[in-house]
Amino acid sequence: MWDYNDKVMDHFLHPRNVGEVKDADGVGQVGNMSCGDALKLSFKLDKDGKICEAKFQTFGCASAIASSSALTELIQGMTLAEAEEVTNKNIVDVLGDLPEAKLHCSVMGMEALQAAIANYRGEESDTEHEDEHAGRIVCKCFSVTDTKIRNTAIDNNLHTVEEITDYCKAGGACGSCLEEIQDILDGLWKEKKTESTSSKQTEFLSLPLIQRVLKVQEIIDSEVKPMLEQDGGGIDLIDMKDNVVFVKLTGHCASCPSAGVTLKSGVEAVLKDCLFPEIVVENV
């Protein structure tokens, strides 16, 4: 038994805008019978280019019907530019909440909207042709490609296989691709991490010297000094060159046999954490 909230039940039992818009400006259909859910969305624009009528037909479970109904309400009065920005999260927000394993229903809503907009513009739909079919099929049961898994993970900040299954069904049937999905996720987020850290470095190094110094000084004052003072030590910032920070340990730290450890696993670790991992600290 799914724990659907009142809003979801309301949209399921009293679905808004069922049917097909006559002389529709855009029509999009996603999903298919074998997947167990499918949604056909059609809309009409008024003279100002806003969606004045949107209707749906859905084959699927209660949450698929509720998500479709919510979608048609959500996009009423939107321009196509606005509608293009609609994500599955917006659909979930209209419904309040969906059980995790049913989030793919809201994704289907977003994809149908994108397909309908693409149809209006006479383009091939993104979801149909780039995400869905580009790449290599990983989940054979639901024909989900690695590209689609990657995009779903990035769009929704997903880190676990279970989340991927909830959002795009991949791995939800025979389960033989679960390990491969995990590999894709591991690879993806590792990539992202290096990407984002190297961009942090570039960003930091592009600052004027005075700003870089102020930033490092601030971290030393607030994070490092209190730590060293506990043992009667201290630290002064001496100079900076590229990603190397030169400091002078003072007080007890200056003569302490563990100064090297303090420098690397104390001072350097804090700076790496606050700035970027490539930073190096040297004692002068």
């Binding site: 799914w2 399921f12 039992l13 167990g36 859910d37 084959f59 699927g60 479970c61 209660a62 698929a64 019907i65 394993a101 049961c141 639901f142 299954t165 069904k169 939800g172 049937a173 025979c174």
Partner: peptide, 29 residues
């Protein structure tokens, strides 16, 4: 049509049955 929505509608009338469909079980097939 899909089994879960059928069962949900039946449930509102107090009729209990089951479905071999995907959505009711938490599995997807």
């Amino acid at each position: 049509i899909e089994g879960e929505s059928i069962l949900m509608m039946m449930d509102r009338l107090g009729i209990c049955a089951s479905s071999g469909s995907a959505c009711t079980t938490g599995s997807l097939e």
